[in-house]
Design a protein around this nucleic acid. Structure first.
Length: 426
RNA sequence: GGAGACGUGCCAGAGCGGCCGAAUGGGCUUCACUGCUAAUGAAGUGUGGGCCAAAAGUCCACCGGGAGUUCAAAUCUCCCCGUCUCCGCCA
């Protein structure tokens, strides 16, 4: 959520941000108009209330007939206070509703436009030239079946489309990947976390998801709980309604969780294999820091993601996501996309967002202001970034495959697979 | 699943429907005292919001969350959430 004071101070900036996102620019003015009305109403109702409070003190001291007279008089006042307060409350609620629709202010430098308007920041490594090597690469599912690593058919039998079994080396590979990610995170000073995957509506909404309209979210209506699409939800909610001490630097958590996505509206897209599935596992970095440090932290999260990609020896590129593709909470987002040979395309393996103070404001996460002339509290910045997911298996299998269908294990991953250097065809 | 108890500030813990933003103790900060430490004494110690150009100031709100009763609610009523105890059930 955006701070109204910032909006009031700088409306043009927010209008420009909306424009770059291809979003509704007029929302800014609507909010400001409502804000003026709200403040007027609040001032009025508080003045009335102060009058009532003063009156109340006289009532408390009065006795007998005098008291009766005062009571009769104040009753009317109480009514007008009630009325004025409810008007003010209504306006506040209305303003909040509008404010919640306003996405985060984009960061300077974010390319304007939609999904296809990203900017490629860099490209690392080169896709393998299978033609030169003299064989046609198999796709990850074919490989997964040859290795006895992926079973989509039985997944569908049990749970429906986009569900799967990872078995044998497939299961081991995923655990190895996630474990390697966790180890790296811990070495970098992150606190490892295994998070709840069912959360309350407030938590879901606090993180920036719209539980009423978001078609991606699985709901458990009977219990009013929501399955998370990422551990970011739980990790962001972790410190909700808290005031943090960030004097010793950022608070960093690495969350390991299963993630659930309905993938509504993606019918026919990525239907083969485990590229796009309803359930997968992920290790996610999450940082709480000051707004000033958030930009540098964003670079650090990206660097840690790249470190992981280097360990699994995949060619990838880094893109700066365009404004229209940022989602509600992000001010800037970098994706790392690995080359998937049989698709002839780069596909997202990681994503890191700087949500600046947007999430924190909604979740009410603040920091104590320290230093000269600083007092009070202010919203912290939150950031997140992917370290590993089930989807990585796709790129790993395809990129490291051999002509016979076996797959070479990247060196860094071998210790996590009991020294295995090749995943053999069964 | 059934029965009951409880939820107050950084922590512990009082609180009669008005004098309670809230006693008291501890912690913390600053100052004083002390050769150092400890001990002691004094003062301070929440958050959000409105008015104000801003500060100062002032007003409003906040005692798990939300509704209600009342001129007036931490205090009464209802709902929700959470914690604890007992019984049952399942591991």
């Amino acid at each position: 959520m955006i701070d109204v004071n910032e909006l009031r101070a700088n409306p043009e900036q927010f209008q420009a941000s909306q424009r770059a996102r291809g979003a509704d620019e007029s929302l800014v003015e609507s909010i400001l108009a409502l804000d003026a009305r709200r403040r007027e109403a609040v001032t009025g109702s508080e003045a009335l209330r102060a009058g009532q409070n003063a009156f109340g003190k006289r009532v408390a001291q009065a006795k007998g007939e005098e008291k009766q007279a005062l009571l009769a008089e104040v009753k009317e006042l109480a009514q007008s206070v009630k009325k004025a307060t409810s008007v003010a409350d209504e306006l506040s609620a209305e303003q909040e509703t509008l404010l919640r629709r306003l996405p985060n202010l984009i960061q300077d430098g974010v390319p304007a436009g939609g999904e296809d308007d990203f900017e490629v920041l860099k490209t690392v490594g080169v896709p393998r030239d299978f033609a030169a090597e003299g064989f046609e690469p198999r796709d990850h599912l074919e490989l997964g079946e040859l290795l006895g690593a992926i079973d989509m058919e039985r997944g569908a039998k049990i749970s429906g489309s986009r569900f799967y079994f990872l078995k044998g080396v497939g299961a081991r590979l995923e655990i190895a990947l996630l474990q390697m990610a966790m180890d790296q995170a811990v070495r970098a000073g992150f606190t490892p976390m295994i998070t709840p995957t069912l959360v309350r509506p407030e938590t879901m909404q606090g993180t920036g998801f719209d539980i009423a309209h978001d078609a991606e979210i699985y709901r458990l209506e009977e219990d009013d709980l929501y399955l998370v699409g990422t551990s970011e939800v739980a990790l962001a909610g972790y410190h909700s309604d808290e005031i943090l001490e960030l004097g010793d630097g950022p608070l960093r958590y690495a969350g390991w969780s299963t993630c659930y996505r309905r993938e509504a509206g993606s019918h026919g897209k990525d239907t083969r294999g485990i590229i796009r599935v309803h359930q997968f596992n992920k290790v996610e970095m999450f940082t709480y820091t000051s707004i000033e440090d958030s930009y540098a932290e964003h670079e650090r999260l990206l660097a840690w993601e790249e470190e992981m990609l280097a360990k699994v020896e995949l060619p990838y590129r880094v893109i700066d996501t365009a404004a229209g593709d940022l989602g509600m909470s992000a001010a800037r987002k970098f994706d790392c996309e690995a080359w998937v040979p049989t698709q002839g395309a780069y596909r997202e393996l990681t994503s890191t967002s700087n949500c600046t103070t947007f999430q924190a404001r909604r979740l009410n996460i603040r920091e104590r202001q320290a230093g000269e002339g600083q007092k009070g509290t202010r919203a912290v910045a939150t950031l997140n970034g992917t370290l590993a997911t089930t989807r990585w298996i796709v790129a790993i299998l395809e990129h490291h495959q051999n002509a016979d269908g076996s797959v070479n294990v990247p060196t860094a991953l071998r210790p996590y697979l009991g020294g295995l250097d090749v995943l053999p065809v069964l």
